[in-house]
């Protein structure tokens, strides 16, 4: 057990934590925007899958990582637009349309993979970028400043998202729409437009989350590559109380727990693997239960806006 506290293990654990947290963070930050505007998008996992395939395919055939990332984002936006059309314009039940989107993404990504690629192939993903000087800091330097570019982007997005939500008129509009769409509407805010924008932006980040798996961590594509991470990301939004910083802590907690359970197994600590596998899920529930602040849900969450009826 004491081995767990050695510097080598701690460095390793924190490193793995960042790798595992990155896709969750992208997707959960995106979902935060979507939910702040009042739309629960349960289709995140499907968006991640299709984008992951798109990014992978571009890198496989074209070799450009940048282009792969852009394609992943575009696929995300397209699927976000579909989600918005169904749930904002058509006022559909968001839980169900999200599940539809997820099924579509799961099926479509596997189908395209089968038809266009056929067998598992690896690609050269985003390389680690060592940030000079900062990476020299003892202990923390190699953990924080020797990652691939998507890890940096994901964590840089946290303050940016916070700033947009809390300090800009766009953020104000998003929150107003999620809190009280009728009031926002009467103040001249285009509710549907704001929701379309938020959902699409969120879906774009979900697309980046997909790319963060297929062309940055595992560097390949396979059926159901995300294995449900999109749903975990949605859960983390509730964990984070709809704030970017809270969401980041959620992603880090979940990932460090996962990293910890792997280390417990590697070091031969006598816990059944199944129990170790449960750790991240149990810990997330427990920590949220005992934490003081829970965050307040946007009042109009999951509620389509019909002018004159709310």
């Amino acid at each position: 057990m004491s081995e767990l506290l050695s510097a080598n293990v701690l460095t390793g654990m924190l490193n793995t934590m960042l790798t595992l947290a990155t896709p969750l963070l992208f997707a959960a930050l995106g979902e935060t925007f979507s939910q702040r505007s009042g739309v629960v998008n349960l289709g995140v996992d499907g968006i991640m899958l299709l984008s992951a395939f798109g990014a992978f395919y571009v890198v496989l055939t074209n070799g450009s990582l940048f282009l792969g990332l852009v394609v992943a984002m575009l696929i995300g936006i397209a699927m976000g637009a579909a989600m918005s059309f169904v749930s904002v314009t058509m006022k559909a039940e968001q839980g169900v349309s999200g599940i539809g989107l997820q099924m579509f993404g799961l099926g479509m990504s596997s189908l395209l993979f089968k038809v266009m690629v056929g067998t598992v192939k690896t690609v050269q993903g985003f390389p680690r970028v060592r940030i000079p000087l900062l990476a020299e800091i003892p202990f923390l330097g190699p953990i924080l400043f020797n990652n691939n570019v998507l890890v940096y982007i994901a964590f840089a997005l946290v303050p940016i998202c916070w700033y947009v939500l809390e300090r800009t008129t766009i953020g104000l509009a998003i929150k107003a729409v999620g809190q009280n769409p009728a009031a926002a509407d009467s103040r001249g805010i285009n509710v549907d437009l704001v929701r379309y924008g938020s959902v699409c932006f969120g879906a774009m980040l979900a697309g980046m989350a997909g790319a963060a798996i297929s062309i940055s961590t595992v560097n390949l594509f396979q059926d159901n590559l995300t294995a449900g991470q999109g749903f975990i990301a949605v859960a983390l939004v509730y964990f984070g109380g709809w704030t970017p910083v809270g969401v980041m802590f959620g992603a880090l907690l979940f990932s460090v727990a996962n990293s910890l359970q792997l280390w417990l197994q590697v070091l031969g600590v006598n816990v059944p693997a199944g129990l170790a596998n449960m750790l991240p899920y149990i810990l997330t529930i427990v920590v949220l239960t005992i934490s003081v602040s829970r965050g307040k849900a946007p009042a109009a969450l999951n509620r389509p806006f019909l002018r004159g009826e709310n």
Binding site: N8, G12, Q222, N224, A227, Q229, N258, L262, Q265, V266
Partner: peptide, 24 residues
Amino acid sequence: AETWTGSFSDVALMTAAAQTHILN
């Protein structure tokens, strides 16, 4: 050393498990 991820399909966690072994 053995790790079991608890999933037949979770590639990302499998990657993390392998990285953990390598760091070990």
